[in-house]
Design a protein around this nucleic acid. Sequence first.
RNA 1: CGGGGAGUGGCGCAGUCUGGUAGCGCAUCUGGUUUGGGACCAGAGGGCCGCGGGUUCGAAUCCUGUCUCCCCGACCA
Length: 510
Amino acid sequence: MIKHALNAHRADDFAGWYQELIAQADLAEESGVRGCMVIKPWGYGIWERIQKLMDAQIKAAGVDNCYFPLFIPLSFFEKEADHVDGFAKEMAVVTHHRLVSDGEGRLIPDPAAKLEEPLVVRPTSETVIGAAMARWVQSWRNLPLKVNQWANVVRWEMRTRMFLRTSEFLWQEGHTAHTDEAGAMAEMLRALEMYRAFAEGPLAMPVIAGEKPENERFPGAVATYSIEAMMQDGKALQAGTSHYLGTSFAEAAGIKYQDKDGGQQHCHTTSWGVSTRLIGGVIMVHGDDDGLRCPPQIAPHQIIIIPMLREKDADEDQAVLDYAKALKAQLARPLAFGEPVRVLLDVGAEKASNKRWSWVKKGAPIIIEIGPRDVAEGKLAVIRRDQMYKDDGKLAVTFPEKNAFAGEAAALLENIQAALHSEATARLHSNIHRDISDLEEFYAENRKYPGWAEMQWARPTGAALDKIVEQLKALKLTMRNAPIDAAAADGVCFFTGAPAVERILIGRAY
RNA sequence: CGGGGAGUGGCGCAGUCUGGUAGCGCAUCUGGUUUGGGACCAGAGGGCCGCGGGUUCGAAUCCUGUCUCCCCGACCA
């Protein structure tokens, strides 16, 4: 019987496990403000890694970073009808610009300082960026125009969960304008592929890229594509989206250009984003009953060195420290994933055993402990976080030679990254079912983690689609996306019996 | 936003029904004994009992309002 670091276990209480992991791994905590969280150093460090790696890819694609205001005039939202419908219900509105005392020791918004036009806290920036694009774009020579911003956004969610759905979250939103549909679609697909590769690479999180059905589209979009990841409870998590917005936002904001023939045309625009929700995905894909297993590429520290200082013999402790420092210098030299290895020498005053378990819970990929005996033998004790236990349930500690280990550490990190990815990939594929003849029966079974169903369908619209959505809802199911690289349809629609045109993934979702 | 549950030292909880000196485990600090895999013994420190109002001689406990969190639902790029 293994004594795990977390009290809640995935198999018994997935939601409780998720929350305990976030607390124990020091990723985030409650803030006292509904739906808003404090992201702590280890959690924010993961986000910074995500930002750094993705920002480089965004720039490489010729997209420039900008910053647009947090406050958006209310009237901007009234211009695009579908967009209004999509976001009106969840917007934070600023109506005053001054506080005054009410005479009883409390502060209230000053009735005399009411804003002429309320400002909304951005839930997304299509409208304000569209207004800027309208100023910036004159001719076809200005196109394509591609900008991105890293920002926070606010959506007044009814039910929140840390990282997965918070009222305020951090994200990246790319916005582009093009002369024609082909250019915009190409950009939308480029962003989708960037997200797919990013999830599979740095996050070691396998995903399925595909198009969202009509009812799941972004408000105002012509087409919405997503990457969907499978959590360890079999639920889907939409981990990134990319939208082709047609010309409706350009029409609403007046983004026009003069074409080669001298005529005025509306631009075709796109938007695409990923958020701190990715961290929730990483937790639910890679976490285990001892905490997070952080993929090395996004781990703020990849290797932790814990010196076993016994505070009895100063010379002995100094020797251990010197040895540990030398090891740190040695480990930081090689490149893993094309970057210097990130090594932390944990010299804090905490007990060594506490340090070890704290790094286990945080999911540091490699944890090294060094004691006097290691110094004498030129060795070290290594715990590989993704494979912590031996078959007998004991910690799988290895004792390699120091110099040999230093030479192999970078490769070991890459190996851990690959192992996490392949473990998750095997789980994803073995839980997508293509032979389901009766959805109700399949999902009504008392199977805890039924996974997803991939069904052929005719892609109906309107009332026919609504009926399917209702039918699925009764089983707590949603359509996730129509995978881009699914096999071609060769049968009839599971729902309507009409000739199928594509395949669609169905599952429970966050 | 509807239904249910909860908020008490850093963490996990008991105490609330039946009002009467705020407790336990872990963690922390000190001393001692240990020392290669989540040490042991002894002692100590730490609490506007979420917040406001009320009832009472007296409130963690009863009443009331409110905030926050969790679960189910509705909603949801």
